[in-house]
């Protein structure tokens, strides 16, 4: 068996058009889910009557079902619903909107839990200190609690993002033309499935690695206040490196 490298180059060239689509899905989902996740986390932490149950139910619902089932349900339910409201035009909607819906709903549930645990890691003494210098609870939340919580949430937000990137490949089911869908189509024309899938593999690897680097830099930048004097472990720049980066110790 030999790989058809010419074909791989060709697939790589066409599938690259799917990269923006994949990134779009991820970014839209993150940007919308971010504030809603914080809000839902607060509802859960402060046990807001009525709403708390709803949020909890929602989170369990999303976390307890496979994403593929969610995609199938949204993709069959929404068009028919819309069909009843706006008629035939419903079927002309770009399917990427359905992808936005599914992945946003998904990210909301994940981020709710991420923010809930992050907010709970902030010591309640921080709020008390805020009150005792005369700040309102709301001011203390925005200026003291939330910034600290977001920073401790960063590793988990990175995780959520990576899952989103990878899960977005399922959007091909809704005939969204992302990386996976384009490669699959190419492969089906030429029966070179392995080659096409290898290309897909590499693309996701590159995107995920880039996301990891971005989050690492964000974390390093924002958690400067948490670093005593010695450096924390660095980022493993080699994706397949077995050697872990050394801890640098600076004396002061």
């Amino acid at each position: 068996m030999s790989l058809n490298t010419d074909f791989m180059v060709k697939v790589a060239q066409t599938a690259i058009q799917g990269v923006p689509v994949t990134l779009q899905i991820v970014l839209v989902a993150l940007v919308i889910a971010f504030p809603i996740g914080i809000l839902f986390a607060l509802i859960r932490i402060y046990r807001v009557k009525g709403l708390q149950r709803l949020v909890q139910f929602y989170v369990s619902l999303v976390r307890g079902t496979p994403i593929i089932a969610q995609i199938l349900i949204v993709y069959s339910a929404f068009p028919s619903l819309l069909n009843m409201i706006i008629g035939r035009a419903a079927f002309a909607i770009n399917p990427i909107y359905y992808a936005y819906i599914v992945f946003t709903l998904n990210a909301i549930a994940t981020l709710t839990e991420v923010f809930r645990s992050a907010l709970q890691t902030v010591d309640k003494g921080q709020m008390e200190a805020g009150l005792m210098v005369g700040m309102q609870p709301r001011q203390t939340f925005w200026r003291i609690i939330l910034p600290q919580a977001l920073i401790s949430a960063l590793p988990n937000i990175a995780n959520t993002t990576l899952y989103l990137i990878k899960n977005s490949s399922l959007a091909f089911i809704m005939s969204v033309k992302d990386i996976t869908a384009i490669a699959k189509t190419e492969a089906a024309f030429n029966y070179n499935f392995l080659e096409a899938y290898l290309v897909v593999w590499v693309y996701y690897l590159i995107i995920c690695y880039a996301a990891e680097v971005v989050f690492y830099l964000l974390e390093r930048y924002f958690s400067k206040y948490r670093r005593p004097i010695k450096k924390t472990s660095g980022f493993n720049w080699l994706p397949f490196g077995i050697k872990q980066p050394k801890l640098e110790r600076k004396q002061s």
Binding site: D123, G125, Q126, E128, A129, G130, M132, I144, P147, Q148, I151, Y225, R226
Partner: peptide, 12 residues
């Protein structure tokens, strides 16, 4: 108010 465990704002 001065707290037992200081409660300084960690991000400031």
């Amino acid at each position: 108010f001065v707290f037992q465990n200081y409660n300084l704002f960690n991000n400031k």
